[in-house]
């Protein structure tokens, strides 16, 4: 009997020591595998956080359906419910993409605060919609208090969110994200809505200039900028600025600078900056006379190779 007791006690002691060591190792591994564990609610719900979040999500939808609108009276309740959901499942993208948006008008600052938490979540690193929504809410829903410093600070934050969205979008970010990013950068420089066209052009030119300086080994300059097709965008913005020439001297000066620095080696109409083809004598967009290029100096035929196909003269 004594032998049996000793055997049992030895098994128990060995099991406790080995089990505790193994559990400590497994806990570390589990933390690496499930990085969201740290963000989970400490509520004792038997490890069923995910299922509880599903139930709470449906109750939240039901609750929203019972409201006329999210306003001053219920915004705290909505925010509390959203925060509870985030603690039950920090990776639940619908909570941010659909849930937090319901709060964006009544309490935009709280909505941005919640979206910021989602942006910091490593499990949602590939989601570009969340930072885009945060930037959008900052730009469109947070009220302007007339203070320029606050205006610039808010625009800077929005630009950071849009930049994050572009980086998370991969190779081809949506055009509206890039446009929002450029506009936010312009606002961050203190440019107001009425002169945003100038601000956008200035931002694009500065970005182009910075990228050009950073360019090495003939690599595309887009590789050095988060803005895709930067030169194309710059040309388009310059064209639009030219087209709507409202006598803004600064804008005209900037367009001229862009023409000289960026478009010097391109064949563009002087008036509207539209590119024209070899042999063209007039701009196909505005009808202004342009200086022809790529033609035979003897007969004026468009050159296709080293010799003129009409008179045989060497290029």
């Amino acid at each position: 009997m004594k032998k049996m007791v000793v055997v049992h006690v030895v098994i128990m002691i060995v099991a406790v020591i080995v089990g505790a060591m193994l559990a400590a190792h497994l806990n570390q591994t589990q933390k690496k595998l499930s990085t969201d564990k740290e963000l989970l609610s400490g509520a004792p719900i038997g490890g069923m956080h995910k299922f509880a979040s599903d139930v709470d999500w449906m109750l939240f939808i039901n609750y929203l359906g019972s409201l006329q609108s999210v306003n001053e009276n219920n915004r705290k309740e909505v925010a509390d419910r959203l925060e509870r959901l985030m603690k039950l499942d920090p990776n639940f993208d619908k909570v941010y993409q659909d849930g937090v948006l319901s709060l964006s008008v009544a309490d935009p600052n709280k909505a941005v605060e919640l979206l910021q938490k989602a942006c910091d979540n490593p499990q949602l690193q590939s989601n570009w919609k969340i930072p885009f929504y945060a930037g959008f809410i900052l730009t469109h829903h947070v009220k302007d208090d007339g203070n320029l410093a606050n205006y610039k600070e808010r625009a800077k934050r929005a630009a950071d969110f849009f930049e994050m969205a572009i980086k998370r979008s991969g190779q081809t970010p949506e055009a509206y994200i890039v446009n929002s990013y450029v506009r936010a950068l312009a606002r961050a420089k203190g440019v107001k809505e009425d002169s945003l066209k100038y601000g956008v052009l200035e931002v694009l030119y500065e970005e182009w200039d910075r990228s050009k300086n950073r360019r090495k080994d003939g690599a595309g300059m887009e590789d050095y900028s988060v803005i895709p097709n930067l030169t194309e965008r710059l040309v388009k913005a310059a064209q639009e600025a030219k087209a709507s020439d409202d006598g803004n001297a600064e804008l005209s000066k900037l367009v001229e600078k862009i023409k000289q620095k960026v478009l010097a080696d391109q064949h563009l109409c002087e008036k509207c900056l539209t590119p024209y083809a070899p042999g063209d004598k007039f701009c196909s967009s505005c009808g202004t006379g342009v200086k022809p290029y790529g033609v035979c100096s003897s007969c004026g035929t468009v050159l296709k190779g080293n010799y003129c196909s009409n008179c045989g003269k060497k290029k």
């Binding site: 099991a15 406790v16 020591i17 089990g19 505790a20 060591m21 193994l22 559990a23 400590a24 497994l26 806990n27 589990q30 595998l33 499930s34 969201d36 490890g47 069923m48 956080h49 995910k50 299922f51 499942d89 990776n91 499990q123």
Partner: peptide, 25 residues
């Protein structure tokens, strides 16, 4: 550590329910 996982069971080690939804090896 000695208490939890040794004498007291840590069944949360088996809990990977959110992985089933979100993936992750």
């Amino acid at each position: 550590s000695i208490l939890y996982g040794g004498i007291l069971p840590d069944l949360d080690l088996f809990n990977f329910k959110s992985h089933a939804v979100y993936g992750g090896a």
